[in-house]
């Protein structure tokens, strides 16, 4: 019989018996980062392709969500910091080797740009919310338009945001991809946590993020062809995600002992049901089936697959952050 124990009574809060220093704030932020990345990616991509009128919601309306969710994410991050009085230190230096530093700067860069984009389409937003049940956004947007008309500097920003749409879109495209990938690379850079130590995590989080963006657009779309287009995009992305997941597990099982132990958490361990059932089943496969049925002209309310994909994305990140902290090299 083997025993390994701390003989000096070590029981550090949140470190022992298993590491658990990142709680709900980090998965929420990762989800939000992926969602924003997806929204901004599609907006920029289809704008640059010239499909502004073909996919009006994707390009003009949906991106308003991006700054809102990013701010929610940033607040969550700030709450997570244990030494928040010094958070500004993040912006006194760029550390290329630290994914967290990239993230801080990327977010810093994408934040104003993601606000400028929907600002430039403020009138379309007003029209979108006019005939919606919820009057609040409409009132808020009308107020913003009033501000634009009243104050010259806001009007000036508004003008330039329209003039600079193309450069902003190009920058946003790049930043969106970095944002999406970095959420995964952030985790995969910690090779001390064997579950995260896979190079597939970056692409997987990117694809997952973009698919949640597509789901959000799908949900908000008004015209059928836009819904259908994004439904098809989502279907492809879900397929890629499943492909990545299968290969990720193949990678774990073919890797070192600590990785195999990490994989066991999902193959019989405590996370098996919630991962395969809730995330893969309800968050990927079920919406995929629903979308295929949609393609065969079955009437499915679009909200269902959209919601499931968004939920799946959130649950996936919660699972990965929690399970990853449990895996370790020693003890």
């Amino acid at each position: 019989m083997k025993e390994e124990l701390f003989a000096s009574g070590r029981n550090i809060p949140f470190i022992d018996p298993v590491l658990h220093i990142w709680h709900w704030q980090i998965p929420l932020y990762l989800f939000v980062g992926g969602l924003a990345a997806g929204l901004i990616f599609f907006a920029s991509y289809f704008y640059l392709k010239g499909d502004e009128e073909k996919y009006p919601i994707a390009v003009k309306v949906a991106p308003f969500l991006a700054p809102i969710v990013i701010i929610i994410g940033l607040i969550a991050l700030l709450i997570d910091l244990r030494h928040p009085a010094y958070f500004w230190q993040l912006y006194t230096t760029i550390r290329i080797e630290s994914p967290m530093s990239w993230g801080a700067w990327t977010l810093g860069a994408i934040m104003p740009l993601s606000m400028l984009w929907p600002l430039s389409y403020i009138k379309d937003l007003q029209a979108y919310f006019d005939n919606r049940l919820c009057k609040m956004p409409f009132k808020l947007i009308s107020w913003i338009i009033k501000m634009i008309n009243r104050y010259w500097f806001i009007n000036w920003i508004y003008d330039w945001s329209i003039k600079l749409r193309k450069p902003i879109a190009i920058i946003n495209l790049v930043l969106a991809i970095i944002l999406g990938v970095y959420t995964g690379i952030l985790l995969s850079a910690f090779n001390a946590r064997p579950l995260w130590n896979t190079s597939l995590l970056g692409p997987l989080f990117l694809v997952s993020g973009i698919s949640t963006g597509a789901a959000a657009i799908m949900w908000m779309a008004k015209e059928h062809h836009e819904k259908l287009a994004f439904s098809k995009i989502d279907l492809i992305l879900v397929g890629v995600e499943l492909f990545f997941i299968v290969h990720m597990f193949m990678g774990f099982l073919a890797s070192t002992a600590v990785q195999q132990e990490a994989a066991q958490l999902f193959l019989g361990g405590e996370f098996t049901a919630v991962f395969w059932g809730l995330f893969v089943g309800a968050g990927l496969i079920l919406p995929a089936i629903l979308e295929i049925m949609e393609l065969f002209h079955f009437k499915i309310p679009i909200a269902i697959p959209a919601f499931l994909i968004l939920l799946g994305g959130l649950v996936f990140r919660f699972i990965m952050v929690d399970a990853g902290q449990i895996t370790r090299y020693l003890y």
Binding site: R82, A192, Y329
Partner: peptide
């Protein structure tokens, strides 16, 4: 800033808040 990245990165669980 207390982000905890270094704690995640350490394979020896040597760091703490």
């Amino acid at each position: 800033i207390g982000c905890g990245a270094c704690i995640q990165a350490c394979p020896y669980d040597a760091r703490y808040f």
